[in-house]
Amino acid sequence: MTRADVRPGLLAATRLGTGDVLAAARRIRGHVLRTPLLALDSVPGVLLKAEHAQRGGSFKIRGAANALLAGPGGGVVTGSSGNHGIAVATLGRALGVPVTVVMAEGASPAKAAALRALGATVLHAPGGVDERDRRAREHAERTGSLLVPSSDHELVVAGQGTVGLEVFEDVPGVDAVFVPTGGGGLLAGVCLAARDLPVRVVGVEPADARRYALSLAEGAPVAVPPPRTIADGLRGQRPGRVTLPVIAGRVDDLVGVTDDAIAHAAALLRRAGVHAEPSGAVALAGALESGFTGTAAVVVSGGNTAEALASTGLAVPPQHTTHLTTEGDRP
């Protein structure tokens, strides 16, 4: 799917702009790392944006910091497959804010254990990402906690956009940027940062989770069944209300990649000394599958493998699991 395929019905007005990304960069300075761009010798022309080396092990700390630092304080709740929850819990511990994370079925046990080690309360919801996020909203309403979604939130999107801001500052002439796309917060943020730049923005989705490509082709939001991809951080089922119009108005292409392609990209990264989780290898898989000319920045979005979490001492065996039921989710 290319930008020319986007139907006008999705090009709704959005309040977000590049100024929001610049404001986020100022707000989160000192709370996040400015990650480097690394050359990948085995693929000439590729520069890896090393968000696997970010605080909390992924780019998610950027959006989480922007939302928490701008928020009213008090307890925080979120729905997460792991990395966003780890980011929120990392900040919550530093700020003295209690954090509750709702996880869906099939979420990484190592990431759940890491969340508990960071002091977060972990709740498990039956079903997929849609059900997880619904339970997180209900928990926030019932407890009065601040809800910080993993992607579909203006402050989160602006914070994630600082990834693109750094890329475009460090390599002003970059020809393309490949962005892993799950909930869409990172892609939307990069689209904001690239709004007035002559750079090609390409979102990369797992083949069985192409809700953005399908939505842009249909001209309306399209939901998909719970995906089974190995890229556990990209298993969202529907595009976001905040993210979809931003992406529709700026993305140049959306490509899909199979689990085999993701595993191949992860192996290439591993041989180069970059230990990315499957979700973190998706953008490279997209660059390899679709091809590119010139210089391409590829966002390695996360490195929270079970081995990486164990090396930090966070992936400890869980003591207990709290499951949400239809009667409520109070632990």
Rank of each mutant, 00 (worst) to 15 (best):
V257E: 11
E166Y: 00
D208K: 08
V202D: 13
L40R: 10
L16R: 03
R241H: 11
L33Y: 02
A114L: 06
A67K: 06
A193F: 00
A308P: 01
A306T: 11
M1V: 12
A263L: 12
V43D: 13
A140H: 04
D41W: 02
D329K: 02
P225C: 05
V201S: 09
L324D: 11
P149Q: 07
L91V: 12
L147A: 09
A217P: 04
R132I: 02
A50W: 00
L48E: 10
T322C: 13
L95S: 08
A285H: 06
G79K: 07
L214T: 13
I262L: 04
Q160F: 01
G182P: 06
L216G: 05
L146W: 10
S42Y: 02
D130A: 14
P126Y: 12
R211D: 15
L314Q: 03
S58P: 03
H124F: 09
H320W: 14
A70W: 03
A65K: 05
A140F: 01
G233Q: 01
A113Q: 05
D252T: 08
I61R: 09
G303R: 03
H31V: 07
A64D: 13
V122W: 07
R93G: 04
T2M: 10
V129R: 01
L146Y: 08
T326W: 09
A266P: 07
P72Q: 09
G30C: 05
V204Y: 00
A220R: 15
L10Y: 01
A117L: 08
S58A: 08
T321Q: 15
P318H: 06
S290P: 00
V177N: 10
G85H: 09
V257L: 08
V179W: 03
A223G: 02
G30D: 06
A261Q: 15
S81E: 05
A306S: 14
P180H: 12
F178C: 03
G182D: 08
A231F: 01
L10R: 00
Q160K: 05
D196P: 02
S145P: 06
S58E: 13
L192E: 15
